[in-house]
Amino acid sequence: MNILVCVKQVPGTNQVEVDPETGVLKRDNVESKLNPYDLFALEMAFQLAAETDGAVKTLSMGPPQARAALEETLWMGASEGVLLSDRKFGGADVVATAAALELGARQMMPFDVIFCGKQTTDGDTAQVGPELAERLGIEHAANVAEIVKVEDGALTVVVDLDDAKQTLRIKTPCLLTVEKDANVPRLPSYKRKKAMTEDQIRVLSCADLPDADESKLGLKGSLTRVEKIFPPEKNELNERISGTPQDAASRLYALLRGRKLV
């Protein structure tokens, strides 16, 4: 099977804060890493490729330094990677990100299966995968925990629906987003790292994509706008309750109820 995995480079830390005084974003550690959820998608892809004698390619969108995330996928087992990098892609929301990935994926066709992580640790939306599937006109299944059967033209997968597990037979080509802890992701191989050549990763700009419509990409193509960012209200509550058990329980209940916690 021909397999594509979409990955993203994310900040190495979630410790981003807004200084409440100045409104300045503070980010102590700007190191980046491969989105942890993507590791499960990659592993499922490698296993499916091994089973079907197929190959795994990877696709990402991001600044030039996101190349590092793609390199890591190659060290793990991908055969080639494409990085979509252009200022015109910048500031993309879900719609515009899916639009760019669609163009990239079309450059790398054909595919039987496209894998995505269930979400990213920075955006946390879980929406890009399903939007990409819709744009490509293929079926998708989200929160896939397992592939239980591989047939010609279809996969049988188990998806996690909070309250239940559905077993689905989904026609290929399709897109699957992979649940956390679906498998044990492999580590990058030193041998593969040594053997990697520069040309295994291609960087494509907007101009390299023949069907690119700039009005649908990046900030211009985004349908949502961030009006402003602000620090969350700090919960400085530190209340001490004493008194009779009856009174203490009443006060505690009122506090919990007020916060919709019980």
Binding site: P130, E131, E134, D162
Partner: peptide, 19 residues
């Protein structure tokens, strides 16, 4: 929900809606 998070983007993409 897991299903809502899978459905909403699919519909949004089909309708050209912000999400």
């Amino acid at each position: 929900t897991n299903f809502g998070r899978s459905l909403a983007p699919r519909v949004a993409a089909r309708c050209g809606a912000g999400l």
